[in-house]
Design a protein around this nucleic acid. Structure first.
Lengths: 235, 235
DNA sequence: CTCCCGACTTGAACACGTTCAAGTTCGGGC
DNA sequence: GCCCGAACTTGAACGTGTTCAAGTCGGGAG
């Protein structure tokens, strides 16, 4: 009932408990792993190689990361940040919806381009529904919400006239389209993933056009149903 | 230059060479594996357990199957056959496009329902672009083409009026939509995957409606562009 | 200074998928 | 009847991700 072990000395309000002594070890392991992944690919990089290259014991890597896959998780959130950064230029200079969407999609590819070679493997684990790495999983909710928020920015910073009932859900649909682009990109074997760029450049005007059509009287009921369906499935 | 080893005795035209002595062993291993997969899940089923349960050595399983994943490949093609069978009832009795599409999509879920629990794992490996199990891979081309052909049947056996330039590519687009449904199904944690059923029931009328709209003058250019894009990406 | 405790580190050990050199079986040619 | 070669079968051994009991280290309480 009484205070358990009253605080003596000066008030320790600055750093309560987590004094990360081994924080740099964690960074070292992570950086080494990412380097080896890029150099040799994910499957060809063993945990033993990572540990040896980083100069630590293999068990030590597991002290900081739950599994080999979780090493990728870090890269995942980092890529999200990079996407935001790369999209910023477009989002601060453009007001046209199509231009903003196009720039943001390209920025997403730019942010991940250095990792295309082993993004395939990453995507494999991400596709598993039970995996915490799945973009649809609860664990990924923060990154996903951040990504959706980015597409909300795309929309709201634009001059596009969007029906009121679409404004709320469109960002999520744009994010879904982005996931589709990523899916295509992962499978894209063309040099420099040129076909993915082509896909973006040609699909953006289509979305833009579809948005205009969405205001037509004949099309409205369809749009209405799409919105309802999305909401029903999310529930 | 002369005939190498002229055929003696009666003409052996019936069975040239592949006399499958161990064909039943292969079936035994496969059946055992599928049973254990259903009972314990994919990851929890070891190759040693499969071999032991089937009463063979572990190496023997590798004589018939290249890897643990390839055990799933068999189920994959089997599921394709089952889908066809399950869709047949609808396709022989219905002529309305929406009804045919709906029945065929539901049939696809029916065919895979018993395996939903471990389909997740299966899907994981299938999502890897380099995997021979990927629905987009060359190895899967036969199964994919067969599936697309099924959706061509859906369209051509129907009374739907479809613009000529869409008729060729629509089956592939329908197959793509089917892949989307499967993707949702894999992630669907609702009891009995009810939400996937809901998705099908509500998305089919939308597709049907969109097909009607595709004939409108204002919409035609958009349709035209979609077709061109699909063709460009396939090339 | 000494002791203690939690943060950190170690590497041998485990379970698994996979490989492979060595064996066994069997049908047909002689 | 005998033998050959191909089809088939075996299980020990390898490399991998992962675990864990046993340490080491460092800073604060006494």
């Amino acid at each position: 009932m009484t205070e358990p072990s009253a605080p003596t000395t000066a008030a320790p309000a600055d750093r309560p408990r987590p004094r990360p002594r081994g924080e740099e070890t964690k960074r070292l392991i992570l950086d080494t792993a990412m380097r080896l992944f890029r150099e040799r690919g994910y499957a060809q990089t063993t945990m033993r190689a990572i540990a040896q290259e980083a100069g630590v014991a293999v068990g030590n890597a597991y002290y900081y990361f739950d599994s080999k896959e979780h090493l990728i998780q870090e890269f995942y959130s980092g890529s999200q940040v990079e996407h935001r950064r790369a999209a910023a230029r477009t989002l601060t200079s453009e007001t046209d919806f199509a231009a903003r969407l196009r720039g943001t999609l390209h920025a997403g590819i730019d942010a991940n381009a250095p990792y295309h070679a082993f993004a395939a493997t990453f995507f494999k684990t991400a596709a598993e529904p039970t995996s915490p790495l799945s973009p649809f999983s609860a664990d990924s909710a923060p990154a996903r919400d951040a990504s959706i928020a980015l597409f909300r920015e795309v929309l709201e910073g634009s001059t596009a006239k969007v029906p009121a009932d679409l404004r709320d859900d469109l960002p999520e649909l744009l994010w879904l389209a982005y996931m589709g682009v990523i899916l295509y990109w992962v499978h894209d074997r063309s040099p420099g993933q040129a076909k993915t760029r082509l896909l973006i450049d040609r699909v953006v005007p289509l979305i833009d056009r579809a948005l205009s059509l969405a205001r037509m009287r004949v099309v409205r009921p369809v749009v209405r149903e799409v919105i309802d369906l999305v909401r029903a499935l999310r529930a």
